[in-house]
Nucleic acid binder design. Structure first.
Lengths: 107, 107
DNA sequence: TCATGCCATCGTTAATCGACGATAAGCTAT
DNA sequence: ATAGCTTATCGTCGATTAACGATGGCATGA
């Protein structure tokens, strides 16, 4: 359960951010922002970014939400590519976050 | 109906971005990203950013959506502080966009 | 083996969202 | 004044979301 700089295992293999313009990019950005469009999920992402939590139960302790609800929020973040999970727990998906930042930056 | 560098009238008075951390910032970021969490709204924001449209009817022409739907999307963007409106039409609210970028950047 | 802790999933409920047509209000020309 | 254009708002309907408790599957430690 060691913790690299980026937590979890090393990032699989940094994708080239794909396209940043056009309808596909709009979909992509909408998907990412929609996933982040809830206070609890912003909070969760921050907790993971600061490594103040790595397992679901720790996050549950930090939030006024039931375990199943937190699990669902994590699922949404993972599905959007903002979070990854391994046997060591959850961690930020820096690729996804980078892509989000890039897509926002060029609006 | 002249168009300044930032379209519409000059930005009212650049707010100091307020706080970027804490529960309030989480709410704030969630609100901004939720507003952007729909492909049509991403598209609209881009159109406004590129000044490819300034009035609602132009946006309607660009999207496969009814006028009332576009109007609603504009309302949501405006309510989130990402868009402003004047008698000259709609334009990006650069303050809001800047705040969004800042909040995202420090995650 | 059996208890404990961790987590995903299911089923449910209330609330919110997305989209539309219809309608009304305001402006600008004719 | 009236016709046309632009936009906001209302009511509606179906789909999606947020939240919960209950349940069950896996580990690990006793």
């Amino acid at each position: 359960m060691d913790c690299q700089p980026n937590c979890c295992s090393p990032e699989p293999d940094s994708e080239p951010l794909a396209t940043l313009e056009g309808p596909e990019a709009d979909e992509s950005l909408a998907k990412l922002t929609k996933a982040l469009g809830h206070p609890a999920r912003v909070r969760i992402l921050r907790l993971l970014a600061r490594k103040e939590a790595r397992v679901c139960s720790q996050i549950v302790d930090e939030l006024p939400l039931a375990q199943s609800t937190v699990s669902e929020h994590l699922r949404i973040l993972k599905e959007a590519g903002l979070v990854r999970s391994s046997d060591a727990g959850y961690c930020i998906n820096f690729d996804g976050l980078r892509r989000l930042k890039a897509l926002i930056a060029i609006i």
